[in-house]
């Protein structure tokens, strides 16, 4: 019985959200606002349970006076952050936000270099390992082609992003041209970017289609249960 009640709740919300397909309407807004309220409440609970309590309340409750003293710093930062939300004390918020900005920037720099730049560049270079080419006998030409396409494609894609352009002193109308070599490589890059975006689109579309089928099946299943056929 309990499952059926929750099933009906899910059914109603599903139909209300799917009604958006015929245009924005009150049913969609109703379901959307329930969802917003629910996620907001749930996120608040998670923030309190998983951040505020373990990182702030527990150290104060269980720690000694030294821990207490250390916690004065984040307490001060929190107070400044909260105070900063009032227009009168707006500048107070700049210190805790500067703290967060510095931390986020460092994480971004580390992530960009050690999480993306190095591993991706390494993967391109590793494809040229002759040991890998001859690992499968008779298919080495494919591995070589793979490596070459990877190198040319990545260089082409990077060239497409080139920002600068030739500068002339009488440059009244902005020239759309980057350097010629970059332009040529960029054309190759465009094809590879298109291929990537197309493949990603296909996988997004496939997942979305599976969700659509799942919802249709779900609606059918609950309706069958309600009329006693399931």
């Amino acid at each position: 019985m309990n499952d059926l009640i929750w099933g009906v709740v899910g059914l109603l919300l599903t139909i209300m959200i799917l009604s958006y397909l015929i245009g924005d309407n009150v049913f969609f807004r109703f379901a959307a606002h329930i969802f917003i309220g629910l996620t907001a409440g749930f996120v608040a609970v998670m923030l309190i349970n998983q951040i505020l309590i373990p990182y702030f309340v527990t150290p104060i409750v269980t720690g000694g006076w030294q821990q207490w003293l250390w916690m004065l710093i984040p307490l001060g930062l929190i107070l400044l952050l909260v105070m900063g939300q009032w227009s009168k004390f707006a500048s107070a918020g700049s210190i805790p936000l500067a703290y967060l900005a510095g931390l986020t920037a460092a994480v971004a720099v580390g992530g960009a270099v050690f999480g993306t730049l190095i591993p991706q560049a390494r993967a391109v270079i590793e494809a040229f390992d002759p040991a890998g080419w001859y690992a499968v006998p008779g298919r080495s030409w494919l591995r070589v082609m793979d490596a070459l396409v990877m190198l040319v494609g990545v260089i082409g894609t990077l060239s497409y992003f080139h920002f600068g352009k030739r500068r002339s002193t009488d440059d009244v109308v902005e020239s759309p041209d980057p350097p010629r070599l970059m332009r040529a490589l960029g054309k190759i890059g465009q094809v590879f970017i298109g291929i990537t975006l197309g493949a990603v689109f296909a996988s997004v579309f496939s997942s979305a289609l599976i969700a659509l089928i799942d919802r249709v099946l779900f609606v059918g299943e609950i309706i069958l249960k309600l009329i006693g056929g399931g």
Binding site: L117, I125, F128, L151, L158, F163
Partner: peptide
């Protein structure tokens, strides 16, 4: 400009790295 220069370095680095590999 820094991005442009780094990108050029990266392109050259990839070619040189592939040859060295």
């Amino acid at each position: 400009l820094t991005e442009d220069v780094l990108r050029l370095f990266l392109i050259v680095g990839l070619v040189v790295g592939a040859i060295l590999k």
